[in-house]
Design a protein around this nucleic acid. Structure first.
Lengths: 231, 231
DNA sequence: TAGGCATATTGCGCTGGATCAACCTTGGGA
DNA sequence: TCCCAAGGTTGATCCAGCGCAATATGCCTA
């Protein structure tokens, strides 16, 4: 196995304040791994034994209800830690991590979590900042689910996707990973049928352009209007 | 101001592993305060300057949407830390803390957070365990909002209330603080009308008994059936 | 004791969006 | 080259629960 380059971690917030030798040490302890599109990095309920860093690709954090419905709790984009149950006292993962497209990860055994936080200044702080942000996003989602109409929720979800996972292309901003109507319905608490109808309508209005498993937002500002301007 | 007794903190998870002298030190740094029912300990968007411990009473963590709707994110019961934006890198409180009934709090300036976590073994770990639990509860709520019918959501919310904030009385389990139909609707993303109808129906069936601002669950197991047995 | 406000109840009509159903399109594998 | 499974579209129907409205009731203040 060839050595990992230190530059991999130098831009990742939790590691940003570290020296090259420190990063070298951490990399040498890491287990790199590649995942195919649509596979599970870990599953809901599995024992928390490692924590992960997403080097490349996109990951969906997914929970399944007793009734069998899946919902997408959040998306992880490259450069973020995930599966950090160790930091929150979880014994089992509360959700599954599914790859959206091919992914590269690093991971470390749980036992190293305490070492990292104790040894590397800023590691804990930066990590918990991420946790804080995710909690903030989750409360936003809760508020939307509780108070907004489906169209507004879907518009909000799409805006969040292009903000966090967008890639600029000539006709607008494209969601950086394969995504289906079904996926969007799992993010917004609706059905793929309704999402399909909304996207069709928006496409007719020139707000979005979509192909199979791919969505591009051509007029983000108009999408933003749909978000809350109905009031 | 009279001295606070050390026994106040000896049963609170984050402080449980500490010695008496350590607790003495922490108490001497704390600012105690009493709040009337229905007042705000802090408001959404206010700068995070202190973190709090609820000694007695109950607190609702509340966010308000752009459209003016309030939603209740979670409830804090006595013995829990809250307003711990300091631990998550928040500069402003992402939600307001409203008292449900009279409350007693201790609070410390943010600057002490780093001291506490560094000095007192287990303080950080225990605290982040609480954060982990709250995240878990939030994802549960999101799943319910996204996939379940109103009746199931309200039943789940009521069960959660009596589990976390219930007091055993002779006829059943009573919610330990004043709560209105409106409050419940703000927890479940519905209207006070629908909640009122549901409670009326349940009362007729002998599942709950309610007075103004007070609800007692007389048959928790039947409520649990309503939660998911509809499938 | 009266007045006023917060809380709760209940009826009615309407509609957003789920459900059911049929069919189309695309791309990858044999 | 053909097949077929995954993904997407669109029409028709139905109903849970929201919005609106009117009324009731307990509680606090003066």
């Amino acid at each position: 196995m060839k050595k990992l380059d230190e530059s991999l971690l130098s831009d990742v917030p939790p590691f940003r304040r570290l020296t090259r030798p420190q990063i070298r040490t951490i990399l040498d302890l890491a287990q790199p791994r590649r995942f195919d599109a649509g596979s599970a990095v870990f599953t809901e309920g599995a024992p928390v034994d490692r924590f992960y860093l997403l080097l490349d690709g996109h990951i969906r954090v997914v929970r399944t209800t007793a009734g069998g419905d899946q919902i997408i709790v959040l998306h992880i984009s490259s450069g973020q830690l995930f599966g950090i149950g160790a930091a929150l006292g979880h014994l089992t993962y509360p959700a599954a991590a599914m790859t959206a497209g091919e992914c590269l990860t690093l991971s470390w055994p749980n036992a190293l979590w305490a070492d990292f936080t104790a040894t590397y200044d800023g590691f804990a702080t930066e990590t918990y900042k991420v946790v804080g942000n995710r909690m903030g996003e989750m409360t936003m989602r809760m508020m939307e689910l509780a108070t907004e109409q489906v169209e507004q929720r879907v518009a909000s979800a799409m805006l969040r996707l292009i903000t966090q996972n967008g890639r600029k292309v000539d006709v607008g901003i494209e969601i950086d990973f394969p995504i289906t109507r079904q996926n969007i319905s799992e993010m917004t608490g609706t059905t793929l049928h309704t999402v399909s109808r909304l996207l069709s309508a928006w496409e007719k209005d020139g707000i979005v352009a979509s192909e199979r498993r791919k969505i591009t937002v051509t007029q983000p500002h108009r999408l933003a209007l749909l978000t809350g301007a109905a009031a």
